[in-house]
Design a protein around this nucleic acid. Sequence first.
DNA 1: CCCTGATTCGC
DNA 2: GCGAATCAGG
Length: 202
Amino acid sequence: MSWTDERVDLLKKMWSEGQSASQIAKELGGVTRNAVIGKVHRLGLSNRAGGAAEPAKPEAKAEKTEAKPVKATAESKAEEKPAVATPAPAAAAPAAAAAARPEPTAAPMRRAIIPAGQPLPPQPSANEIDPAALAKVGEVEKHAKKLGLMELTERTCKWPIGDPATEEFWFCGLPSQAGKPYCEAHVGVAFQPMSARRDRRR
DNA sequence: CCCTGATTCGC
DNA sequence: GCGAATCAGG
């Protein structure tokens, strides 16, 4: 694959939106995150300046790589051009409210998960799932990693917890394995075996 | 261990 | 210019 204008545009767009290099790489396809990062640097937009987030960051990094028992890299290389600038007033993405740390005081008691009109996520009615599984979820959610939307990956549980309309909203975030979208506990309530939902009298 | 971006350097 | 390998960190 080569860096066509379209691909570069998408790269720029996603990068400015705060997408990670790996996410961009997946989206583009045919390239690795390294390729993306490499390109990002060559384009001189390593600084995710979308508007004016980070004021100054003049690379105060000196060669920390010296006298290392590593290979034979540490070698002259002079400094690089501090010429970056002109990050264009690109879209200053609304940047989806990422992590909003709810105060630790939040509900001392285990609160049932009552979503407020969630379109996508599966939220089975509490009355038709295995009580044991529910209890397990309640337990697990106590130490949910409370990830923000941007922090979810293919290996994190994407079970939503709380009300999206408030600060008290996050995703479980515990490790999800085997390609499933949820952690073990949430898989338990998300996918019910037929036997469990059979014969539940109203 | 999972992930992140940063840098180097042979191609 | 490209990107794998590597580095450095969370």
